Amino acid sequence: MLGSLPNVSNDSINLAIRIVLGIDVAIFLAVGTYYFILNERLASKASKFGNITYTTPFTIHTGIAWGSPDCPQDIRNEYLHLRRQLLKHNAFIAIPMLIYLIFLRPYYH
């Protein structure tokens, strides 16, 4: 038999949730920064092939005109792969946040 669980207060559960979500946000920011650096490196590489990069308004992000006929196929493939990987990793990292928002927020806030 497993026995009974120790008496856990709402304060300790709130603290544990805050720690987990804080770590999750830190990972989210670190992964975003990593992919930002990879994107900027790819944009630097792509700029050597012509005028296929642009800066997005109000940000420091450099975009790549991957649909342009001047964009080489390998740059296009690498850029799309980078975007897919970022989307997959962000979706995976967001799971604890979604679990909290859907199931735990009404009880612990």
Rank of each mutant, 00 (worst) to 15 (best):
V8P: 07
V8S: 12
S9I: 07
S9Q: 09
S9Y: 08
S9L: 04
N10K: 14
N10I: 05
N10C: 03
N10S: 10
N10Q: 11
N10V: 09
N10L: 03
D11R: 07
D11E: 15
S12T: 13
S12W: 11
I13M: 14
N14W: 01
N14V: 13
N14Q: 15
N14I: 14
N14Y: 06
N14F: 05
L15C: 08
A16S: 12
I17K: 04
I17G: 05
R18F: 07
R18I: 08
I19E: 15
I19K: 13
I19G: 07
I19W: 10
V20I: 14
V20H: 04
V20G: 02
L21H: 02
L21Y: 03
G22N: 06
G22A: 03
G22S: 09
I23T: 08
D24W: 01
D24Y: 01
D24K: 02
V25H: 05
V25K: 12
V25N: 07
A26I: 01
A26L: 06
I27A: 11
F28N: 12
F28Y: 15
L29G: 07
L29T: 07
A30F: 12
A30G: 12
A30R: 07
A30T: 07
V31N: 01
V31E: 02
G32K: 03
G32H: 09
G32A: 10
T33K: 12
T33I: 12
T33W: 15
Y34D: 11
Y34A: 07
Y34I: 04
Y34N: 08
Y34R: 08
Y35A: 04
Y35P: 07
Y35C: 04
F36Y: 15
F36W: 12
F36V: 01
F36E: 06
I37C: 08
I37R: 10
L38H: 09
L38M: 12
L38A: 10
N39W: 02
N39A: 11
E40N: 06
E40I: 02
R41T: 00
R41C: 00
A43G: 09
A43M: 04
A43Q: 04
A43D: 02
A43V: 01
S44Y: 06
S44A: 06
S44E: 11
K45G: 00
K45Q: 12
K45V: 00
K48F: 03
K48P: 02
K48E: 10
K48N: 10
K48V: 03
F49E: 11
F49Y: 15
G50C: 03
G50A: 03
G50R: 04
G50D: 04
G50P: 06
G50Q: 06
G50E: 03
N51F: 01
N51M: 02
N51S: 09
N51K: 11
I52R: 01
T53R: 01
T53I: 14
Y54V: 03
T55P: 05
T55D: 13
T56C: 07
T56A: 13
T56R: 15
T56N: 13
P57L: 10
P57G: 09
P57D: 12
F58I: 14
T59Q: 04
T59Y: 06
I60Y: 07
I60L: 11
I60D: 11
I60G: 13
H61Q: 12
H61P: 04
G63F: 06
G63R: 05
I64P: 00
I64K: 00
I64R: 00
I64T: 00
A65P: 00
A65S: 10
A65N: 12
A65L: 05
